[in-house]
Amino acid sequence: MKQFILIAFLSVFLLGCKDTKPKDGKFHIVTTTSMITDLVENIGGDKVVVQGLMGAGVDPHLYKASEGDVSKLSNADMILYGGLHLEGKLVEVFEKMQKQNIKTVAVSDALDKKDLIGSTLFASNYDPHIWFDVTNWEKITVFVADQLSAARPEDKAFFQANATAYLAKLKTLEEEIKAEIATLPVDKRRLVTAHDAFSYFGRAYQFDVVGLQGLSTATEAGVQDVQKTAAYIIDHKVKAVFIESSVPKRTVEALQKAVNSKNHNVVIGGTLFSDALGNPGTPEGTYIGMFKFNVHTIVSALK
C-alpha cells in the first residue's frame, strides 16, 4: 500500500515539477548504491554533480524511495542503478522516470548475459552482485564513461581520461588481491557469509561460497538454513564465518552458536562489506578500499 501511495505521489509530483532542474551548467546524476556513486565520482570528476541515494550500511534489496528521493530523481539528467532487480523496490519508480524522458541506465547492461551467474531464485534470474569481480567493474567503468560521453560530448575527453586512470587503479587492485589470496591454500577457500552476495567473488578467485540467506535479504534465514550451513562448516572444518555491514548479524551469531554446540569451534572472522561501501572518508568508503579490506579480512581469518 505504501509503495502504491509513493507511485501515486510520484505521478502528481512530476506533473507539477517541470523546469526545476538546477541551472548550474553541470550534469546532475543520481545513483543508487554507494559502489556506483564512487565509480561515477571517479569518472565524472568536477564536470558532474552526483547524488547517491544509499549510504553506508544500506541494503539495496530492501530500499524504498522516499519523497526526497523522488525529488532528486525527477531533477536528474541521468540515473544510474545496478539493475538485475538489485533495487527491487525501486523498479516502478525507475519506469516512471523513463516515461518522463530521464535517462535511466542499469550498469549491469555493460555485461554480457553469458558472463552473469544465473539464479532461478531471484527475480531477474541472475545474481545482481556483479561488483565482486574486478573484471566486471572494469567493463562497467568503460560503459559508464561511454554513457557520460554520449550525454555530454563536450566533456568526452575528460570522462575518457578519468576512466583510463581509474582502470589502471583497478588493474593494480586485481594484482594486489590475487597476490594476497594466493597465500591462502585453495582447500581453505571456503567463504560462509550472511547472504549469498559473493558468488562472483568465488568464481573469480576460487572460493567455495555459502550464503546463510539467499541472493536477496528480503526473506530471513530459517532453522533449516542454519542447520544446513552448520553441517557444511563442520564437514569442511571451516574456521571462520563472516557477518556483513548491511545485514543484521543475528543470523550469523545463531549459526555460530549452532556449530559450537556440536563441538566444532568456529569464530566470526569479521565484518565484510557486501551491498554497500563503508563510511565516506574512510578507505572502505571507496570500491578499491572496500575490496582490499574484504580480501584481507577473509584471508586473515581463514588462514
Rank of each mutant, 00 (worst) to 15 (best):
V259N: 04
G82W: 00
I79C: 06
Y205Q: 15
L148M: 09
L80W: 02
G214I: 04
S119K: 01
T172C: 01
L39V: 10
E284S: 03
D127F: 07
T282W: 01
A76I: 06
V134G: 13
D133W: 01
E176I: 00
V40E: 13
N265R: 05
K47I: 11
T172E: 12
D19I: 01
D225G: 01
L39R: 12
K303I: 07
G16F: 13
Q227E: 11
N125R: 10
I181K: 07
V295Y: 14
F159H: 06
A151C: 11
K2G: 04
A150P: 00
V142A: 11
H236Y: 12
K188W: 01
F291W: 05
V267E: 15
D208Q: 15
S199N: 14
L173I: 10
T193K: 02
M97Y: 13
A230T: 05
V267L: 02
Y200K: 15
L302S: 01
W131A: 08
I130N: 04
A204V: 00
K239F: 12
I117A: 12
A218V: 01
F94H: 15
T172S: 06
S71T: 12
D208M: 09
G289H: 02
M290N: 11
N136W: 10
V241M: 12
V48Q: 09
A8Y: 02
Y200Q: 10
A157C: 03
G278I: 03
F158I: 15
N279F: 02
F293T: 08
V299W: 09
L184N: 04
L111Y: 13
V40T: 14
T229N: 13
G16V: 07
K99D: 03
L148E: 06
D133I: 12
T219S: 05
K99L: 08
I79G: 05
S11Y: 07
I233P: 02
E175S: 05
V210Q: 10
R152L: 13
A240N: 06
S216Y: 07
I29E: 09
K99N: 13
S149N: 14
D46I: 04
T31S: 15
Q224P: 00
I29T: 11
R250S: 03
K72T: 02
H129F: 08
E154L: 04
K237Y: 05
K257C: 04
T219E: 05
L86P: 02
Y126D: 15
A150N: 14
T271R: 08
I234R: 13
K113I: 03
Y200M: 14
A76K: 09
D59A: 06
K99E: 05
Y63H: 14
A110M: 04
D187M: 07
G269C: 03
A182N: 07
T217C: 11
V93Q: 10
T229I: 06
I234H: 05
A106Q: 07
L121C: 03
K292G: 00
E284I: 00
Y126K: 04
V50D: 12
E180F: 00
Q206A: 08
L184Y: 05
Q206R: 13
G289M: 06
K47F: 07
L73N: 11
N279G: 04
S66E: 14
L148R: 12
G289C: 14
K262V: 03
N42Y: 13
D77T: 10
S300L: 04
L277G: 00
